[in-house]
């Protein structure tokens, strides 16, 4: 069950970033192609090729009937959803940055207390936002506002906040529980995620030492 949730989370954010990239690629290509065909119309007309000009004009209007005005809006919506669920995934992979220079100088028991405090603070903040967001979405659902280009109901668009924050809250609690049990925190290890064979060990090791990576307390004693 949990593993299914993990998978869903990963598939969702990876698909969103891929889809958004492709969408912008398509809309730029489309815009550029329209410009080219329109230049063709003008060229044929000025050189007296009326038949070709009319043909180009037909294809121009054909191409333009593919309406991509909404692409920018959809990209933004997809990225906001990617950001909210990706932030939850980031808790699980330990990518969220903190200033740990001070607590790293404390003795292990105290440091453990601070790490727990940080995780619970994360759960508190995201839990509060989930509740506020749910309340906000509930109000929006009654206001019947829609997004300007796609005309999607705004409350569905804004649903990313309560859902993403609730998931993030759950992840913070999950990590806190794991930390209590084993004393370990998730590592953010680029090398592994990138999944490339050669030279990855070194790179992964490098990122492991980066402050972007929450310190594993057991490792810190070295």
């Amino acid at each position: 069950m949990l593993r299914l949730l993990d998978r869903l989370e990963e598939v969702l954010i990876a698909s969103l970033i891929a889809a958004a990239t492709l969408l912008i690629f398509l809309s730029v290509t489309h815009r550029y192609a329209l410009g080219l065909v329109a230049d063709g119309v003008a060229f044929f007309r000025s050189h007296g090729f009326d038949g070709l000009s009319a043909l180009a004009k037909t294809s121009y209007f054909g191409l333009r009937s593919v309406n991509l005005v909404w692409a920018q809006e959809l990209t933004i919506i997809m990225f906001v959803w990617m950001a909210k669920f990706g932030a939850a995934y980031g808790v699980r992979t330990g990518i969220h940055v903190g200033i740990d220079v001070v607590i790293n100088r404390l003795e292990p028991a105290k440091r453990k207390g601070f790490v727990l405090f940080g995780l619970l603070a994360g759960a508190l903040f995201t839990g509060t936002i989930a509740a506020l967001g749910a309340n906000f979405v509930w109000h929006m659902a009654h206001a019947s506002a829609i997004s300007p280009d796609l005309e999607l109901p705004m409350w569905i668009v804004y649903l990313a906040i309560p859902l993403g924050s609730a998931l993030m809250c759950f992840r913070f609690l999950q990590v806190a529980l794991g930390f209590l049990r084993t004393g370990e925190l998730p590592h953010h290890d680029h090398g592994h995620v990138d999944g490339l064979e050669d030279g990855v060990e070194e790179v992964g090791e490098a990122i492991l030492h980066s402050p972007l990576t929450p310190r594993d307390l057991t490792e810190k004693d070295k």
Binding site: E10, I17, A18, F79, M82, G90, V193, D194
Partner: peptide
């Protein structure tokens, strides 16, 4: 130098890093 099968993992790690930065931005 990269196999098609590696692409989903690159997407995921990019999404992870981006989401972290976007979360700081918000």
């Amino acid at each position: 130098d990269m196999k098609l099968a590696d692409v989903p993992r690159v997407l995921l790690s990019s999404a992870n890093m981006s989401a972290m930065l976007l979360y700081i931005i918000t």
